[in-house]
Design a protein around this nucleic acid. Structure first.
Lengths: 152, 152
DNA sequence: CTAATTAAAGACATATAAATATTTATAAGA
DNA sequence: TCTTATAAATATTTATATGTCTTTAATTAG
């Protein structure tokens, strides 16, 4: 298998990027996100609820309701999203699955993995939603990016 | 979730380490590995079969049968084990799950992740079974390591 | 107050990984 | 050849993640 993030977490990252790219003056519908980013609607609903409970998104029921970023894009990092959905077990769990592996009593992989784990964490902290949007403007692919977005 | 390796893969790494630490002049029983490393026996059986088919282990049925390393410990790397069990999707798959992400048309995470992925790969290549055993002798914890091992 | 719109919640279904149990095939030794 | 020890193969169960469907609750507009 070799997965880093769960499917839910991948969806969360993509959905937040999509929401961030919409005009800030109105909320974005679950239906719209689901269709544009191609995620099962009710499954996505639960993911966005979780992000809302974690304080990353705002959500409103009823007409004109929907989802929006709770903070400005420069305050939301990929790490926050990952932690909200998957938890960041990567930080604690032994990469080789040894049950009692920790710094004072490390397995043979421990130190090497600690470095990599740290790289991952730093990378995810550095990637704010703002930066991801910037990247998109510079041509990095975000499949659901509307053609007109760059010129807006 | 945030998993790097599947449970099977963790078991594979641990089991190979265990086998490597046994005397080379006889085969190691599935039953013994399962008990000492604390892995469900039949589940482990399938994992070891897979390692045998991949050419990492030798296996023999019947009395005096069991499993053994097919190569000397310095020829077997953690990467080989991971690839045999999980495949190394890490190499190909987009970390954020974008379906059509590749080098010529990368998502915003692509380059950062490529570096980390490479670090992981290099680390796993560097960790031969021999080195892991060396580490164990230097005090790195391997829970199923027999107390007497260091002085043998 | 009523109807319409939307997210939230809960129940259910499916897919996959993990674990367990049973049967079969192979080799060794008496 | 017969029995025993062992891995290999197969079938079954359980757990968890993912996906779907239905109902409920909240909000707005009229």
């Amino acid at each position: 298998m070799s997965v880093i993030f769960s499917r839910s977490c991948e969806y969360a990252l993509q959905a937040v990027m999509y929401i961030a790219m919409q005009p800030r003056n109105q909320m974005v519908l679950l239906k719209e996100v689901a269709e544009k980013v191609n995620i099962p609607k009710h499954f996505l609903g639960k993911i966005l609820q979780k992000l809302a409970k974690s304080g990353l998104l705002d959500s409103q029921k009823g007409p004109n309701g929907g989802f929006a970023l709770y903070e400005t894009p420069n305050k939301i990092t990929a790490l926050m999203i990952v932690e909200a959905i998957d938890g960041f077990d990567l930080v604690n769990k032994c990469v080789a699955g040894f049950p009692e592996c920790h710094r004072e009593d490390p397995c043979p992989f421990h130190e090497e993995w600690a470095m990599i784990r740290n790289n991952i964490k730093e990378m995810l902290e550095k990637e704010t939603i703002e930066k991801l949007m910037q990247d998109a403007k510079e041509g990095k692919r975000i499949p659901f990016l509307k053609p007109g977005y760059l010129t807006k």
